[in-house]
Design a protein around this nucleic acid. Structure first.
Lengths: 348, 348
DNA sequence: TCTTGTTTCCAAAGCGCTTTGGATATCTCC
DNA sequence: GGAGATATCCAAAGCGCTTTGGAAACAAGA
């Protein structure tokens, strides 16, 4: 019951009649110790339930063994859901790699800065994970100036080099828009996410580029940026469907399945049918509870697992810490366009 | 740039020509140091940006200064949203109190147990925060047997004594049901949360008790347990509204506003009106994005801020750690029933 | 036998903080 | 002026781990 308290390195080494050095090295896989001794040490450690004290290890090694994840400042409905999935997978991967995840709250820039400073100064975290950056996110230069390693899930306009993992939002929405153009749609609406975030800008750029390539120019009324929620999709789609014919969209491109649900509602309330009258594509973050496959009709989607990204971000962060000399990682994942039944040729 | 590394207690004390002891005591508010010295020390600490090393402090003091929050095993849509609010407020409060929050992943009992053991053995967290317990939650006795202090947001059937903060779910739903009875409703439906969780059981008990007090017995068809999502509310309400008259409900009681949204949809799709034809009450967790006040019509609700609960849980956890000898805290918050326009007398 | 190298292990010095057990100076009261 | 109380400060011993700089034992080549 109490043994885990008293069973420290010294006690274990005395028990084994070895020095603390040897025991430590045996457990941490150093080559200077014979395999025989190592096995003996490991067996004893297991037997007595020895677990090194995290605090002592941290003090000695100068690293905290924890990653900080910045809790997003604005939180809204299903946008939250995506973050939760991301966070959950970060925690899972971190746990597998022997790291802890602590949350840094971000409310307002001043307090946010104070949080970072505190974390850095007292060495509470070894690296930070940021997600969903703004177009020009001040947090990057702040962390840089504080000498805090960080990795960004997403990208910004910043010229400086930083560690990042992002999906190819532009390419995804380019592909999706091109598909709709190829199907003969000439009025394609974009229901986007928050336009102050970079991913939304990238998506819009991809959308515009594909339209331009097809010789089309989207009317302003066909682009709506806002929250990743059903109601936003519903009101915006409702508004657009009330437009006169040349501008009235025959296809919708959504930044999330939640928005697509709203679009579907608006479409059906007009007596129209998704897949024939109206084509619909959404970005699919592969959340367990909102699936493109079980959408009615099954939803054509650009898909990329946000959970996989969370895991990878942790992997990269840990790799950065272990090999500080290697260049900062920078990955951009391609996004699959999966065609299902929610898209079809433009109605005549 | 680098100063935060070198500015440790010793450097600061040399700078001030004081001993480390005095500096430490001055900063930590011990009475043995004169106010004059304390002011001087604090000023210097501020000036040089001194922040004590968390690792060193943890090692010396034997506490990690972090609380673990157990990430719930099952995660679904808006249930998640509630947890996120809870978590966010935990982080906020913990930050204010100088504590960190780390997340413990909970997937399956075995791995969960391993997570706890690891956390306990290596003293990574000082206490755990559990939320949304099952009716008989095995985690309690597990943490107890590991000697890990914990506090539960919610309650279970367990006889043992443990630290807990809960809202009066039973009382809330008793009140709400009684109001509906007083308004003359005789068929009142309950759209509940996940029945394996204790809060759902408490709510159902309150509902049943109020019905019984009014001389009513709910037909089985009028009770539905499930997820805290709109679609669940919609399908269950739709099913119930299709029943024959004596059983067909004239009032609905929901466990979340999200469910109420679904009920509203089902009600309106039958051409009925909330507030006159059908009365509706929901539990309101006071989330920023889903508000009872802006519901259409404004929603009569049993309300209790889940965020406030998160903050308080952290306060209690810290208090437990600071005063281990005081009896375990156990708070049950009353829940307000706020009457708005979604309830009215039963139609004749 | 002496050197050199290899393997295996160890003593001891930190890491930066808290805390114990005094030491020194200052006040108070007879 | 001395005894006792009080206020103020300090030296040093940990906390439990990692890591440096050898040492001891043994084998092999000169």
């Amino acid at each position: 019951m109490e043994e885990f308290n008293s069973m420290n390195l010294r006690a274990l080494s005395e028990l084994l009649k070895l020095s603390q050095t040897t025991v430590s090295r045996a457990l941490n896989g150093f080559p200077e110790v014979s395999e025989e001794t190592r096995a003996r040490v490991k067996a004893a450690a297991e037997l007595h339930g020895y677990r090194p004290s995290a605090a002592a290890r941290r003090l000695a090694i100068g690293q905290s063994g924890t990653l900080g994840v910045v809790f997003p400042r604005e939180r809204n409905m299903l946008g939250d859901l995506i973050f939760t999935e991301f966070l959950g997978c970060c925690v899972e991967q971190a746990s597998d790699m022997g790291y802890d995840i602590t949350l840094a709250m971000a409310r307002g820039t001043q307090t946010e800065e104070a949080v970072y400073r505190r974390a850095v100064r007292s060495a509470r975290v070894d690296a930070m994970i940021l997600s969903s950056p703004l177009i020009e996110d001040p947090r990057l230069s702040l962390l840089r100036s504080l000498n805090m390693p960080f990795i960004l899930h997403g990208r910004t306009r910043a010229a400086e080099h930083y560690a990042t993992l992002d999906i190819d939002n532009r390419g995804a929405f380019f592909q999706a828009t091109r598909l709709l153009c190829d199907l003969g749609h000439t009025s394609i609406a974009l229901i986007n996410g928050d336009p102050s975030h970079n991913y939304a800008v990238d998506r819009e750029n991809g959308y515009r580029a594909a339209l331009k390539a097809a010789g089309l120019t989207p009317p302003l009324s066909n682009i709506a940026g806002g929250m990743m929620v059903e109601s936003h999709g519903e009101t915006e789609a409702g508004r657009m469907l009330a437009l006169a014919l040349p501008e009235r969209p025959t296809a919708f491109l959504c930044s999330s399945i939640a928005q697509a649900l709203g679009v579907k509602r608006a479409v059906e309330s007009k007596g129209l049918k998704i897949g024939s009258d109206i084509s619909l594509i959404a970005h699919d973050d592969r959340l367990a509870d909102i699936r493109a496959e079980t959408f009615d009709p099954p939803l054509t989607a650009t898909q990329s697992s946000i959970g996989a990204a969370g895991k990878r971000v942790v992997e990269l962060a840990v790799a950065m810490l272990r090999e500080p000399s290697t260049p900062l990682p920078s990955e951009v994942w391609p996004v699959d366009l999966v065609v299902r039944q929610s898209t079809g040729p433009a109605p005549k």
